[in-house]
């Protein structure tokens, strides 16, 4: 039995000989060759690419080893079978998660990392963010769309737009019910229900921001 094992091991080494030589040549090309190449040659791999191709070479070595490796035994117990199945599945998923973790990661948006205490500043971030769509139609400080009224000094002007409404009431009404009062010279294109879509807190912040534009 022991002789058989030794024979199998020797046979495996003999069969893997060319694979090992290929991998060694490949790794030498990745790591040793760049030392002799000037940076401007256009052939020299940077460190991240060296690591990247080394990882691929190692995976290749594992794959070709699997082609030549002896057949594993089948577990005898039900627990052993389920354990082996789960281990293969878990190892595969674990490898994929690891790949996702070692690849380059971008930064989260700054406004998500910093908690802004000031509702006016939060409202400004919301208003200027193209995701909320405000800036697509309304300009502030010369930037933004022209399909809707310019928001310059809206905090002051809002108090005089509709009789009986304060500046805050007018701004709230304009967002919640945009067709209630349409500024002269503009089409009623603002979609209804925007306040609900953007959510309560962002809505309050945007109102605070617009009121601050004086």
């Amino acid at each position: 039995m022991s002789d058989q094992k030794t024979f199998n091991r020797q046979s495996l080494i003999a069969r893997l000989k060319w694979h090992l030589i290929t991998i060694v040549i490949f790794l030498a090309a990745i790591w040793i060759l760049p030392v002799f190449l000037p940076e401007e040659s256009g052939w020299r791999l940077g460190l991240p690419f060296q690591v990247f191709y080394t990882a691929i070479a190692i995976l290749g070595a594992v794959f070709f080893y699997l082609l030549e490796s002896p057949t594993p035994s089948t577990p005898k117990t039900t627990f052993g079978i389920w354990f082996r199945i789960s281990a293969v599945f878990l190892a595969t998923v674990g490898f994929l998660v690891l790949v996702g973790m070692v690849f380059p990661q971008f930064q989260l948006p700054e406004e998500q990392l910093v908690i802004i205490d000031d509702p006016v500043a939060r409202g400004e971030a919301q208003f200027l963010n193209s995701a909320t769509t405000c800036i697509l139609c309304h300009a502030v400080d010369g930037q933004g769309g022209t399909r809707g009224p310019d928001m310059a000094e809206i905090g002051t002007r809002a108090a005089t737009q509709v009789e009986g409404l304060t500046a805050e009431e007018y701004i709230r009404q304009s967002i919640q019910d945009p067709t209630a009062f349409v500024v002269e010279g503009f089409e009623p294109i603002m979609p209804p229900g925007l306040a609900e879509i953007i959510g309560d807190e962002p809505f309050e912040d945007i109102v605070a921001y617009l009121l601050s534009l004086k």
């Binding site: 996702g100 989260l108 998500q112 962002p202």
Partner: peptide
Amino acid sequence: VAADPSPYWYIPPLAYTSQVTGVLTL
């Protein structure tokens, strides 16, 4: 057309996406 009003509107990093996907796969 409509912004994501939630505080989670941003694209999460790849590592987080990979972890969530891995856990859901399991």
